[in-house]
Structures are given as structure tokens and as C-alpha cells.
Design a protein around this nucleic acid. Structure first.
Lengths: 242, 242
DNA sequence: CGGTTCTTTGACGAGATTCAATGCCGGTGG
DNA sequence: CCACCGGCATTGAATCTCGTCAAAGAACCG
């Protein structure tokens, strides 16, 4: 079965990377109650404390999960690329414990949460794909704890960018060398537990070291191996599929 | 069905808090191929890079998940109490992406990983319980990213201790007020991204503020409400079941 | 173009690390 | 029963990374 032009394409491509999805599985996915929507930068897709009834997949654009600290500071806990399920983290939980926000213009696929939950138990391959997706997300969260807790500012930023670039190219959305990043420096700071001011300083140092090049808001990796080394980046925690 | 004295008791009690486990589910759990083992402080239960064949549940004692940074620093990413499944994070993944270590004398239940995986798909209630457990673990990881990324040293330590105490009393293993903590200050530092020296200073300040009292290695919460407030602790992310 | 958002830079201060030394406690063996 | 020893806790002083505050410049958007 082919599904040319279906809004499910990026999602199905991702699930196929996680488990052997057959034609019947794909048909079941395509039959899910769903709708397609658009969102602009900063729109919320999930709000902390809400009770999500739909599960959201990203078709185009980028998104971030975040939590708010007591003093108003925002901590981003993960970034997401097209094909990612943004709300599988609440598939079996009542209330959202964090926010999901779009960080650029985005297209979204909204799927009924109960229907997806039913599919997860009725179709083993889909269940396995969702399990693996959730567990890989958790692995990424663990790596971020290490990143924020034990790396210095420069390698912390480099590591976060490495991950993003590797995941994006694993999804067939670009190469490591030529990358137009969708982040503001503030967002990089919110993801790494740094201030945007310090992010700026570290990016300058990374550029001065010849690892990256910047013009305007775009960023290019000049020396990918050196950059990975500066980040201390080892992709094992992505389990070759994120 | 009762199961007095079975090594599965702590695990089943935990799963019952997560989903409606019936007698047939319990019988299926009890029929899993398993063995009971002991471990001493610092023993590894799971090693990063290995291919776990058994899933390990904690029956007595305490354990921690950890990852190593490039410079040799250890980052603890979660603590675990009796009843916790220590390796559900690798139930659907090939290679372990982190270590699990015992931090005190412990008793363990080892269960066949493929058999547990089969149960997760064949028995919906068990599947749901495992899903919820894994998703709550992930929620805790996200909270730790926020903790390490956005809180200052004192509230960071207090938050980590709050979580541990709340989870322990939710499992019926003690009250918030009287708590003998199993951590060294070094372990608290490894969990919070701080040095043991600084942990020591912050604990002294928390004691001087009248929130906790220490004698020797034991620690007692004097003012639970004040302590929670100092931590900025809100248990919502535990989803009332961890 | 005019306003807004994002980036860049400098000076200063605060919080946490590092290094180093001492003290305490529990366990072990003579 | 006591002396020793190893692991942890405690403390101080010097240092450094990163945050804060503030201001100006560049890029983007309608």
C-alpha cells in the first residue's frame, strides 16, 4: 500500500523506522479519526495541567516541550522535528505535566487519543513502535539531565545542537554540514539552562575555534568531527531511530 | 487471590497503584520465569552498552540510574525504591543507554525480559500499568531537567529530597517527617549536578533555616511545609502513583 | 520604513568549583 | 578492648564560570 500525499506520511515514515509496520497497520493508522491544523511560533499545542483528548504529530516545522520554573524561567526539555509524536507522553496519563509549544510555523496532525491508545494494544507492531518511541524519548531526557548537570556551557550547547542535527538527518531532513537552525539564542539558553547572553558568547567562541560559521540567524557546521568532539557527542542514546 | 510472602509482592503492589490488575493478571505475573538475588552498595544491575536479557525489580533497598560524562563525572538521573521496575526503560530497546546501580544493600527480583514483554502485549491491564510506569518515569526525568537547569543549589537539593520522600511515603515506606535517607552527600551532588562540598554547605544552610535536622548520617525533616516551599515542590508530575 | 524581535558587547557581581586540610564514625584485626 | 584505617563529612580560601544589568546594533515583518 502506498499513501502518496497523505498527511500521515511523516508519521508513518517515523513509525516504520521503529518497528515493522505492515500494510494492515498502515491502513489502521490512516483510518484513525484525525484533522490537520496549522500553528504559528509560540502557539501552545499542549498546556501543563490540561487533559489532552487528542494526540498531536508534527508534519512540518519544529516544536519544543517545556516546563516553567517557580521564578518564571522556562526550561525546554526536548525539541521535535517533523514526524514526531508530540504527545505520546500523555497517552496513558490523565493530566499534562508540561507544555508543548511550536517554535516556528508548523503543520500538525491531530489524532484521537483513545483511538490511538486502542491501536497501541490491538496492533502489536504499532504498540511496539509507540513503546520504542516513548522509551527513546525517555533516553533523550536522561541525556539532557547529564547535559545540563555535568557539561560546561560550550559543550552543552554543542551537544544540544549535535543531537538536533543528527536527529534531523536521521529523518532525512538535511545534512549535518548545511543546517539552518530554527532556534533563537534564547531558546538554546532555555534548553541548556543558560542565559541567552551566555549562549551568544559561547557561539562566538565556537565560531572563533573554527567549528561553526554564522551569518545572520543561520548557522553552519564547518568542522563536524571537531564539533562532535567539542560536544562529547555519542549518538548511542538515540538508539539509531529518533 | 492472595500472595503472602511472594517476592512479587512489592512489584504487584506498585502495579496495582498504576492499573486495575485482576487475579488472572497477578497469576500471570507470578508465573513469570524469575529469580531473587542480593546486591551490595555500588553493585551494577545494568551496564551502559550491555544487552539486558532480564528485567530487574527492586524488593528491598535503594538504587540509582546514572550516566557518565566525558570527564569522568557521574550524573544520577533517578533514584528508585522497593517495588520499582529498574529496567523497564530497556523493555523494547536493544542496548542499555545508562547504568543502574544499587546504593545500599538490596534484594532484587530478576524477570525474563521477553516474557515480561509478552505479558505487556497479552494482558492489557499489565500493559497499561507498564506504560504508565514508563511514562511517569519520563515525567520525572523532565522534572529533573528543570531541577538541574533552572533551580539554584539549595532548592535543587530540597526538591530532589522532597521527591524521594513523597515517592517513598506513597509506596507506604515511611512518613515525610521521619526519614533516614540512604544517600551520601556525594550521591546527592551527582543527582543535582553539584559537588559534594557544595551539597554539604547547602544542607547546613537548610538546617540553620530550621527546615531539616541532621545528626550523623541521618536527616530529619523538621518543617515539611517550609521544606516543600523552599524546594518549589509540586507533586503533580508524579501523577499520584510513582 | 517603523516597530519589534533578536543579537551582540561590556562591566560587574554572585554562586559554585577547586584545592586542601581536618574531623568524625564505623568496621576490622591484632 | 583498643589502635588503626578508610570512607564521609566539614570547613576555609582562592578562583572561575556564568548570571545580571544595561545599552546599542542588526535583522525581520508588516
Amino acid at each position: 500500500m502506498t499513501s502518496d500525499g497523505s498527511p500521515f506520511d511523516p508519521l508513518i515514515a517515523k513509525l516504520r523506522r521503529l518497528a515493522p509496520i505492515d500494510d494492515a497497520d498502515e491502513a489502521a493508522l490512516l483510518a484513525l479519526p484525525h484533522r490537520v491544523g496549522r500553528a504559528r511560533a509560540r502557539d501552545y499545542l499542549v498546556r501543563e495541567g490540561s487533559r489532552p483528548q487528542e494526540c498531536c504529530a508534527l508534519l512540518e516545522g519544529y516544536a519544543a516541550r517545556s516546563k516553567l520554573g517557580f521564578n518564571g524561567g522556562r526550561q525546554i526539555v526536548s525539541f521535535h522535528i517533523p514526524g514526531d509524536l508530540l504527545d505520546i507522553q500523555h497517552l496513558f496519563l490523565e493530566r499534562a505535566d508540561h507544555n508543548v509549544q511550536v517554535i516556528s510555523e508548523a503543520t500538525l496532525l491531530w489524532v484521537s487519543m483513545p483511538a490511538l491508545r486502542a491501536l497501541a494494544t490491538e496492533r502489536p507492531a504499532i504498540g511496539t513502535a509507540l513503546w520504542r518511541d516513548a522509551l527513546i524519548d525517555a533516553s533523550i531526557f536522561r541525556e539532557w539531565i547529564l547535559n545540563v548537570g555535568r557539561r560546561d556551557a560550550k559543550s552543552r550547547i554543542a551537544h544540544m545542537l549535535c543531537e538536533f542535527i543528527v536527529r534531523r538527518s536521521a529523518a532525512g531532513l538535511g545534512t549535518p554540514e548545511h543546517t539552518r537552525l530554527p532556534f533563537t539564542q534564547e531558546e538554546i539558553g532555555d534548553a541548556t539552562g543558560l542565559t541567552s547572553v551566555h549562549v551568544n558568547r559561547m557561539l562566538r567562541e565556537l565560531a572563533e575555534a573554527g567549528l561553526i560559521a554564522r551569518n545572520g540567524r543561520a548557522l553552519e557546521i564547518v568542522d563536524w568531527d571537531g564539533f562532535r568532539r567539542a560536544a562529547g557527542f555519542d549518538a548511542a542514546y538515540l538508539h539509531a531511530a529518533a
